[in-house]
Design a protein around this nucleic acid. Sequence first.
DNA 1: CTGTATCCTGTAAGATACTG
DNA 2: CAGTATCTTACAGGATACAG
Lengths: 118, 118
Amino acid sequence: MFAPRCPSREVFAELVDKWSMLILMTLSSCGPQRFSELQRAVGGVSRKMLTQSLRNLERSGLVRRTVFPETPPRVVYDLLPLGRELAELVEPLGRWTERRAEQMMAAREEFDAAHAEG
Amino acid sequence: MFAPRCPSREVFAELVDKWSMLILMTLSSCGPQRFSELQRAVGGVSRKMLTQSLRNLERSGLVRRTVFPETPPRVVYDLLPLGRELAELVEPLGRWTERRAEQMMAAREEFDAAHAEG
DNA sequence: CTGTATCCTGTAAGATACTG
DNA sequence: CAGTATCTTACAGGATACAG
């Protein structure tokens, strides 16, 4: 993964993505979700980015897309086993970030203040 | 973290970055490293990106930068407790990616093949 | 509702050259 | 050695309009 041209680097670089991670966390904690539910849950994501990230996750075998041929159409996304595995590693990361966010913001202010002089 | 304007979202978006994660993993598994050692370890990273990522990590209180005033200068980076915490969450993610990379690549080929018709 | 297609802009990031 | 500064370009990603 530390080699530029390695497949694992490629995969890693795409998974380590803000939207993908938030989507995985949402599907993991909220269960199967429709497109619009996901868009509401993942604040600030555009339809374009949501579609794109979901396609990536689907393509890599992490997420399943199910279309119910109704009118209006209903599309539900849920985690495949592979996605569940990843989600369980990502969730601690999310919880840690929320727990430590304030501390990091404080560190930044301190850093910025210390480097403002001069 | 699911709210667009929340500090934790901001912090999260910056930590969830290819280079930052690879740097954290390197420092965690290899111990304190000089700038050039890091650049060699994290394949494909430019000086610019390495500097920028390290600054971010330093600014947020995850990494410590130590300058030894010699000639030629020597600069060593190592993890602070906060960085060590994060690194321990990121490492499983890295190991998982390497373990599953092939499987995901296969899933992609299958997906692409299935969507090529038409 | 769940997308796709198009346009448009800012910015991420490589290449290169320079500095203490 | 360990950066900084500058330039340039590709692409990420928002806005908008349209479609099944």
